[in-house]
């Protein structure tokens, strides 16, 4: 869980890195904690602005309803893709056992 005071301490860095599935050494976490703190302090200037009632911009374009017809197109070569796989078996991609 993220700490309440919203600063990006080492615990938070580790929690976030875990969400992002990136292993960090203790040293890396410390450096990141400092750097991210500096960046977030800078980003905090956004809090000066009154953004109430302001719509969020998700897309710059005013285009909408982009659709395609339900028409089949040939798939790409299965072999080509599987050849790149770090590990494969028959026609499957293979990953290590899943332990949650």
């Amino acid at each position: 869980m993220i700490s309440k005071d919203k600063s990006i301490d080492i615990k938070t860095v580790n929690y976030i890195a875990d969400l992002a599935r990136i292993a960090l050494s203790q040293e890396e976490a410390e450096i990141l904690s400092h750097q991210l703190k500096e960046i977030l302090d800078f980003i905090d200037r956004l809090k000066e602005i009154n953004i109430e009632d302001m719509p969020a911009t998700t897309h710059i374009l005013e285009v909408k309803n982009v659709l395609r017809e339900d028409i089949l197109r040939p798939s790409i070569s299965s072999a080509k893709v599987l050849d790149m796989a770090p590990l494969k078996k028959d026609n499957f991609f293979v990953v290590p056992k899943i332990i949650e």
């Binding site: 078996k89 991609f93 293979v94």
Partner: peptide
């Protein structure tokens, strides 16, 4: 598809 020690993906 889960098998011994690893999983296969389709």
């Amino acid at each position: 598809i889960h098998t011994e020690g690893y999983s296969l993906i389709d």
